[in-house]
Amino acid sequence: MLKEFLTDICQTQFVSGFEHINGDKLIKYFEPYTDTYEKDKVGSYIFKAGGTNNAKIMLSAHIDEIGLMITKVLDDGFLSFTQVGGINPASLIAQDVIIYGRENVFGVIGIKPPHVTLAEDRDKTVPLDELYIDTGYPKEILEKLVTVGDVATVKRELVSLQDDVVAAKALDDRACVAVMLETAKELKKISHKSNIYYTCSAQEETGYRGAITASYKINPDIAIALDVTFGKAPEMGSEVPQLGKGPAVCLGGRFNPKLTKKFIDTCNNYNYPFQYEVAPAATGTDTEGIQINREGVPCILLSIPLRYMHTSVETISLKDVEITGRAIARFINELDNSDLEEILCF
């Protein structure tokens, strides 16, 4: 079920700012476990599971993904493009892409052959403005199909590696949309008193914009931001979290210390594995937009370890998604049975 959801949702395009095109796809997945939903004015989808008390808990995982935007239709069927969100141009070379124009147009991104690349240039990354999408179409036809401002993504289906490890594009942050779905399923079983808002936030990759407006709208008592973090791989530092060892709990000024401790206690009590990561300043996640909204929102941030972030082979362990989803459900259950006001009091 989890894998089917990710297979379906990861190959669907949700480039930042264009979430509305396929957003309704989320409804069938969340509807069985939630009561109502709203599409907001920036593109976020907010699914609400009503409770019996007045507490409002916001979960936020961004549905948008990084992508490409066409800036010019060139002669001979080539397209210039820019990035939507942060992309390393090296990750685009030799990839298939789909341009979402008047119809879906396939293309590839190539580079000059090594034979004609100067020796001193071979080790250098080709900058984005020297890369082109090749569609094969002549300009006259391409102009009818593709307009400046259309978006494109790398074409990639989810690949199952060994055990429960999968690779796909856009697991940043669909892995955490899957976490929310797991939490929603669990909470439906064990029931909850507080009102839960599962927010598939828009435009995180261009500045957590959806989280800003969604948290204003929801006006929650607390928020649980969910995102991916760097996973352990060769050439990465020794401090980064490992795949399969549970969520990384983020420590730093953005996060409410007592709420964070409560989550850690819950994990310890119920034997859910977890790891730590530290963010002394910015996290680059929805937390940035939520924490300082209106009168302020106490937040925690949980992250799924992910390798090769912002490429089309983002790699995670499904085990981490399941563990995190369940741990959050148990955490909410614990909050429901405690005095939230006391936890939030400094």
Partner: peptide, 9 residues
């Protein structure tokens, strides 16, 4: 402007 309050198209 577009991020004001609940968002403005």
């Amino acid at each position: 402007i577009h991020l004001s309050r609940e968002g403005v198209p």
